[in-house]
Amino acid sequence: MEKVDNYGLSYQETKTDKEKSKTYHIDKFQKPKARTMLKIENLHAKVEDNDILKGLNIEVKAGEVHAIMGPNGAGKSTFASVVAGNENYEVTEGSITLEGEDLTELDPDERAHKGVFLSFQYPVEIPGVSVTNFIKTAINAKRKAQGLEDMPAAEMLKKIKEKSALLEIKRDFLSRSLNEGFSGGEKKRNEIFQMAMLEPKLAILDETDSGLDIDALRIVANGVNKLKSDDNAVVVITHYQRLLDYIVPDYVHVLADGKIVKSGGKELALELEEKGYDWIVK
């Protein structure tokens, strides 16, 4: 008999005396129904005594790219920090869920283990820890949290090789201290390299385009596009439409005064580029 599995794929089930078996019919493959990855409802957050997010709602499904744009001080970076769990921000109301699981009470590292990745606007310099060692430590910390053994060295090496090639990162770069003395472009490429290594379910790119020349922008965008799949989601925070020529969003949102005030398709970004925000934000 024909059945439909959790992912919306139909298959033929045959029963014998001993076991059940599933037979998928290749010609009957359908695009699975997208799951909700990130869902934020009525999010309020403050830093010290300043309310920054004032009832933010957004839903991002697997396979989607969302862009968040908005004027300075709208709360874009706060949004990124709050989702990642930065303790400098206090969530006063609302919820953040990833694949239906509530994140609000989790520490930043626990959120990372669930698949949250934040590409920092200003990546932090960590002297004395090389790029390679840092990413190894991060990957194995995640595996440990999942009850897995450390990744075998050979596998790690292969992965590092593959992902650094994707971002056109040279070998000697990997042995340098993390972000120390890196140019703006190197820092951002390194962020996306880490994203590629960690394979997050939800990647938030906080102004990853700032300080990038067009060549570096292409490399970074290409990296992100290669990592995109039906199984993850990307939220791009940016000031400028240019990045969205390379990482094409399914939805564009305007964040102003702590709320999403307008949403639309990718054409909204072009309109914003042309007209600015004044026509939306009064």
Partner: peptide
Amino acid sequence: SALFYMQQRGIPPKEAQALLMFA
């Protein structure tokens, strides 16, 4: 800020602190 950065990448706070100290 370095501790938050490391935690965001999945490194628990104690280990992150140790890694910074070791470095």
